[in-house]
Design a protein around this nucleic acid. Structure first.
Length: 301
DNA sequence: CGACTCACG
DNA sequence: ACGTACGTGAGTCGT
């Protein structure tokens, strides 16, 4: 497994990215595609700069190769928990809205509810990890089977977690059921901003195909609304930076924008960038943006 | 060209 | 009974 991990990094990134350097500009230039992903996300090809490694120390060394020119730094700005915030908005669940209104650690708060901790600071690391898997699973339209596999526990135990979650966050349960029903009646789902995904298989007599469409119906409003929001932010950031030479929008990675900025303008750009991203949508919960600065892309996180 | 694997959000 | 968490792109291998 160690060999495979390193072989992947070398064949996909270390060997290939240098071949993609443009002789005229000395940079790698990706292509972004606006009409590939069904949810409204962008995709990135030749090279794909939306899957540069970050999860291992060796992988991060590849990310460190993405650097700002002399006199400049990179700024990375990430939306924090944007899909769960959108789930709170769409479901209107009181507990979830309250958690984000107070900017709580959402996985810790979920763990406290599901596992009945006396207070959030009594939550163990293992309970938080399980709650995080539950939260991801909700966004993906999980089954107890899938959660069980992810956590390495028995299906019955996973089903108990799911039941407890829906007991504590009944608005989420109601939203999931209503979304499936609406998708079946209408044949499509919509994001907060009206982007549609048509799901003809939602009425299929083939159970496998129908269930796949049902998971898409659950996931697409959240993933797609997040895509809408960052696209709105990109338009505002582009308008703001138009004609300004000291800052350039360089990359988008689904919930993250990367800018190249002159060193002496960093403080002002940080504040205004965050403001544009936070203001890109007004939901029933606040949007939160985490910003970082560095000489390279890894440091900027 | 498809299957498999694995990189990211 | 059915299969089993969403969305992508790229390298490798076998055909």
């Amino acid at each position: 497994m160690d060999y495979r991990g390193l072989a992947k990094l070398r064949s996909t990134y270390t060997d290939k990215l240098p071949e993609q350097i443009n002789a005229r500009t000395g940079r790698v230039h990706t292509s972004y595609h606006q009409a590939v992903a069904a949810t409204g996300r962008l995709s990135s090809t030749d090279p794909n700069l939306q899957n540069i490694p970050i999860r291992t120390a060796e992988g991060r060394r590849i990310r460190q190769a993405f650097v700002a020119p002399a006199g400049h730094v990179l700024i990375a700005a990430d939306y924090s928990q944007i899909e769960l915030r959108i789930m709170a908005h769409l479901s209107g669940d009181a507990g979830l809205l309250d958690a984000f209104a107070h900017d709580r650690d959402i996985h810790q708060a979920t763990a406290a509810e599901v596992f009945g901790a006396a207070s959030p600071d009594q939550v163990t690391a293992d309970q938080r990890r399980a709650a995080k898997a539950i939260n991801f699973g909700l966004i993906y339209g999980m089954s107890a089977f899938g959660l069980a596999r992810q956590l390495g526990i028995e299906r019955g135990a996973a089903q108990k977690y799911v039941d407890l979650y829906f007991q504590r966050y009944p608005g989420v349960k109601r939203y999931m059921d209503e979304t499936r029903a609406m998708a079946r009646e209408q044949g499509f789902i919509e994001t907060v901003f009206g982007r549609r995904l048509y799901l003809p298989e939602i009425s299929s007599r083939n159970a496998q195909m129908r269930q796949y469409a049902e998971r898409s119906a659950i996931n697409a409003p959240m993933q797609g609304t997040a895509a809408d929001i960052i696209k709105r932010a990109m338009i505002e950031v582009h308008r703001w930076l138009h004609g300004q030479p000291h800052a350039r929008l360089m990359m988008q990675v689904h919930d993250e924008l990367v800018l190249e900025v002159a060193e002496d303008r960093v403080d002002a750009v940080l504040q205004e960038l965050r403001a544009h991203m936070v203001a890109a949508a007004e939901l029933r919960v606040p949007l939160k943006v985490e910003v970082g600065v560095g000489r390279n892309w890894d440091e900027a996180h």
